[in-house]
Design a binder for these strands. Structure first.
Lengths: 287, 287
DNA sequence: GAAAATTATGAAATAAAATTACATTTTTGG
DNA sequence: CCAAAAATGTAATTTTATTTCATAATTTTC
């Protein structure tokens, strides 16, 4: 898992290559079924791994635990956080349970990955730009079009002057007409969609601020003033859906939250007003 | 903590009035500093509570633990989720790092929660319906509109006859005109949006199959033939964006994958064709 | 309101689990 | 191939948890 992972399972997975023979045995038994490991005694675990009890004990101390019980405690907490490190690709012979688990797990894993890697300073700067913007345009195509649409909805609720465009011609026209104070927020998983890169370039030339949510070192990232670069491993497998969309949505959640937090509490009444306006469209709750 | 809490700390807090003298002592010591309790031995905890060791042990067994170590394990897990739960909401004084972490963590936690609760049998049945459908309509409004749009995009890639509608009038017309073989897939976080519930009712009356992705026991869920009920805790806090969207998207990923897996490998060439058709719109990769 | 029954609690013994000290084996580098 | 270092295991020790049983507190019943 990610280098610098904060959770024990991730740390163990990271350290795997640096461990010696018996430690590797212990690690793989734990990684294979962390939950079971938390419920085993040191003796049981030692037998399962085919090593002696002191080896297990030494293993625990290596990972900054006071001893085996303390290690189990930390492991149990790590298990709770929901991250399982054994996600593989979906296979043709998978049953419902398998592919459901795999998809959830890989989504969760990727989120955890990005959480640990996201540049906070950059988030802060993007939030700055969004707050100062006279107007924000969200552009996306294909799968990212739904992401951009979601962003529009969310930021509108947070009372930012936003709009969303999935029409390539509209995107070009708006980009060309951009001025200082306009922010173009361009979302693309690959960062290689020609139309979007061109719109970004136009927007930049017209003096607007261009922000990208995209792949590291992609053509799009290079054109942007600020690029939030999200590296989600490519899907080697045709079955596996793109988790990048999800990660992008969560990053946008973070940005929206950043905007709201920065604005402070005097902004709260506005949010309530929007929420209340939706009430009449709903059936009352039972209780 | 809420009554009926699933987490150990909540359960203990709930049970407090029903406990006898020494059990109360133990409970209050644990509740006062759960984290410390997880790191204490039974002897230390007994002294801290002013009771004997067997009393502590009995206390643990009362809460469905095998013994003291097992209890500590569960407590440790409860502390993690509890702390997350308590500090989950974004506060006005949070800095970038805090709110970023909180949003990622709560998203991850909710995904893990739903992963473990999702009814696999239901997923299987919904996949069945989707495969057999003559036509699938995705309906959503507000935040769920972007989710429905994403679903259209994804299922279209998987060559299902799908369309997405966010126009209430279109939704009503299509629902009224539905026939056997049509599937109406209606997405709503609350399950209480009047327009969607009405469309669902119309669709059902016209003989089509109605599938919902929504809240448990909501009006919408009741109208549907099949309802995938996703319980994501309400955000009490105005700052926090809805994680339900994310969970819905992942559930739709699961369904799309189910459809593809069920169709088997002879369907693969089609997926490749779609993928290839997008190539010419992109800049070549560097490597 | 006192005796019996029930329940709660703790002391001590027992059992289980984890840790340590040290011996043996394996690996590494000359 | 040998010596030094590292890794691993055996067995003793220590720590920790659990059970048993006796005692104390509480409740119930007449």
């Amino acid at each position: 898992m990610t280098p610098g992972a904060t959770n024990l399972l991730g740390i163990i997975a990271d350290a795997l290559p640096t461990l010696n023979k018996s430690e590797k045995k212990v690690a793989s038994v734990i990684l294979a079924d962390p939950e079971k490991a938390t419920q085993s005694s040191i003796a049981v675990l030692a037998v399962a791994a085919g090593v002696s009890e002191p080896s297990v004990n030494r293993f625990c101390k290596k990972f900054n635990a006071k001893g085996f019980p303390d290690f189990k405690l930390k492991l149990a907490q790590s298990v709770v956080s929901g991250i399982r490190y054994v996600s593989q690709n979906v296979a043709a012979e998978d049953d419902v349970g398998s592919y459901t688990g795999k998809i959830f797990d890989s989504t969760i894993t990727n989120l955890a990955l990005v959480r640990d890697k996201l540049c906070l300073d950059l988030v802060d700067r993007v939030v700055d730009k969004l707050i100062q913007a006279r107007r924000v345009y969200f552009f996306g195509l294909g799968a990212s079009s739904a992401v951009a649409k979601d962003a529009e909805h969310k930021f509108f609720r947070f009372n930012l002057p936003v709009s969303f465009h999935e029409d390539v011609l509209m995107q070009r026209m708006l980009a060309s007409a951009g001025t200082t104070g306009d922010v173009f927020f361009i979302i693309s998983y690959t960062g290689r969609t020609r139309e979007l890169v061109e719109s970004a370039t136009l927007a930049r030339e017209s003096g607007a601020t261009v922000i990208g949510l995209t792949a590291p070192n992609s053509p799009l990232a290079k054109v942007c003033h600020l690029a939030i670069e999200v590296a989600v491993p490519e899907n080697t497998d045709e079955y596996m859906p793109m988790t990048s969309r999800i990660v992008h949505l969560v990053v946008l959640d973070v940005l929206a939250t950043g905007v709201t937090v920065r604005r402070g509490p005097e902004f709260q009444p506005y949010l309530k007003k929007i929420k209340d306006s939706l009430k009449s469209t709903r059936y009352a709750t039972d209780d």
